[in-house]
Amino acid sequence: MDKIKINTGLDGFILVDSISKIEDSTIQGTKDFTRAPACLGIESLAQLGALHVRFITGFERHAFLLKIIRCKILETGVLTGKYLLDGTLINRSGLAFSYRLRAQKENEAQIKGEFLYATVDYDNRFKKEKLKQHYQKVFSCLQSGSKTGCCPKSRRDCTEIRLK
């Protein structure tokens, strides 16, 4: 398949800079924003939750955001500076997972909400041999705090990998 290039104005699709702590039902990470709209903060939280879902399912299933059940944005305008992201798994079934997620700056929650994820088996569209390894690598890089290490050539290459 040809590569598809989308100009999002971003330097990549990964909107989490690092994973600082992860346990069976919690995850913490960071994201440094520079004049970003609040919707990107929501996307960061969504990605953080999805990382935890993949972690607890051993990267054996494809995870995706099913629904934002509720979300409150307390900071109006643009996001700037380093934000602590954290998530707690609050409910789950075998296939679906509900998280309370928060983006904090200077100990104050700026965005918080409840996000629902689902998992499905890898298939012809979501190929296990490609995606499992990819997400494991991204996860490992974020744990080591080296997001750029996920993408040896450039962050833009990350975008292309996900679109293949």
Binding site: L66, K67, S93, G94, A96, S98, L116
Partner: peptide
């Protein structure tokens, strides 16, 4: 997708393990 949400909601309400 409603069933997935339902499974999580039942887990929350009754604190039981749900096998979808």
């Amino acid at each position: 997708i409603d069933l997935l949400e339902l499974a999580v909601a039942l887990n929350s309400a009754f604190n039981i393990k749900i096998n979808d």
